[in-house]
Design a protein around this nucleic acid. Structure first.
Lengths: 204, 204
DNA sequence: GTCTATAATCAGATAGAC
DNA sequence: GTCTATCTGATTATAGAC
């Protein structure tokens, strides 16, 4: 009966984790749809199907909710990068940017106001988030420098500027603008933005 | 005495216009600093130095305040475009994008949440704003198509995608990111973003 | 038109029973 | 841990005197 008594709490914890995952997924979608300020905790609780007070047992503030969503996407990014097949650096970088655009178009890319200071503080204090961010930045940074050395990326641009430009695709309004026009499907939109990002607007 | 009685209200109206201009300037700056949601009407009134109730005599809602700020930048954009010296289309377009980046770095580019529906409605109902937007879009659109025809801009990209990509520089977070790093001054940051926008990340 | 004072609402967070 | 009910503070907007 040893297995039973140890399995019971484990099962309970699994349930908890599952519920927290559901919360994070809902927050993720709401952050992508409406942004941090417009998202209300009441809304999150309603869509998850639990009481607001229960939410606060899992996450102690609205900022923590947002941070959990950011950690979630960061982990998904790490998983995506880890499973990338071997390829030239530029191709890897392009694949990551494409993934960012796909996640955004799928409505799963949380968007946070870069100015909100309490939110910034919460994020910077979150070691899961910071570790993930640094890990991803290191990997992308290595690809960027390798691609510059091999003459695939413009060596005159600072690597950090290239990194930021890639990250910035996560909140690029061009995707929504093009979608509103109803002239291009999602796949075409992604190709267009990828092209403007890497090849620029100028003629080749 | 004819001049006196007609001059009096004209002067009064000038004062009003001046005060409204001060309000709009304050709103402009606050929208650039904190965004629409984080900006409060109390804050605006305090910084202008008038009572909140007085603000509402000039603008009937927070949305109207934001719309006035958008009309203001739109008019400044039109004035900038009108005074541009004759030059090839690509150069004109680049000048406008450079102007956008300069205004943003100067902290004078209001940033609105693209999702807020009541705000969208207010903006779309504002004929001053819509007229300005269409006028600017027409002028930029003509330059874009001319530059594509002359082989300066990539003719494979839809003109509308190029237009949106230029507009999107008004909310490009790369500017703030690079500024935070403290490695480049404002002039360098503008050149970097201009280069990535037009020449792309790839090597020439 | 400007002010002080206040209404009305909404959202983040908590108390306390179960 | 989950719920209902509530507190607390902030924010948009307005009433009414001058």
């Amino acid at each position: 009966m040893r297995t039973e008594v140890t399995a019971k709490p484990s099962f309970k914890q699994q349930m908890l984790k599952a519920r927290e995952a559901a919360i994070v997924q809902t927050v993720n979608r709401l952050l992508a749809e409406k942004g941090f300020d417009a998202m209300t905790v009441d809304e999150v609780a309603a869509q998850v199907g639990i009481a607001k007070a229960s939410l606060y047992k899992h996450f102690s503030s609205k900022e923590e909710l947002a941070a959990a969503a950011m950690v979630s996407v960061m982990h998904r990014a790490q998983a995506f990068i880890a499973e990338l097949p071997e390829a030239p650096p530029l191709q890897q970088l392009r694949a990551v940017v494409r993934w960012i655009l796909e996640v955004k178009l799928a409505g799963d890319m949380p968007s946070l106001p870069s100015q909100n200071s309490s939110l910034r503080a919460t994020l910077m204090a979150n070691t899961d988030y910071m570790d993930g961010l640094m890990d991803v930045s290191d990997r992308l940074g290595a690809w960027i420098e390798a691609a510059q050395a091999s003459g695939d990326l413009n060596p005159k641009l600072p690597a950090i500027a290239i990194l930021y430009t890639c990250y910035a695709r996560a909140c690029d309004p061009v995707l929504e603008f093009l979608r509103m026009g109803d002239l291009y499907d999602d796949a075409q939109i992604i190709e267009l933005v990828l092209a403007t990002c890497f090849e620029g607007l100028n003629a080749g």
